[in-house]
């Protein structure tokens, strides 16, 4: 019960606060994580390919 009430309160709070700078430039970050994602994808597909080839 308590938790639910708390959650509601929290919900309101997070709506009130928009102080964090949304306009912050994070283009480089986005590009960097996309590279990370690319490495994961390529590595995984590579081993999946090896697995299928060896089946």
């Amino acid at each position: 019960m308590e938790t639910q009430i708390d959650k509601l309160k929290q919900g309101k709070k997070s709506k009130e606060k928009k102080t964090q700078p949304e306009q912050e430039e994070l283009k480089g970050t986005f590009a960097a994580v996309l590279i990370v994602g690319g490495i994961i994808l390529v590595g995984w597909l590579g081993v999946f390919g090896l697995f299928l080839e060896r089946a």
């Binding site: 490495i39 994961i40 590595g43 995984w44 081993v47 999946f48 090896l50 697995f51």
Partner: peptide, 18 residues
């Protein structure tokens, strides 16, 4: 980065056979 990528491969069920 390669560590995490490799970990995903290890945990991928049948791919673990490789």
């Amino acid at each position: 980065i390669p560590g995490g990528a490799g970990g995903i491969i290890n945990a991928s069920n049948q791919l673990n056979a490789v």
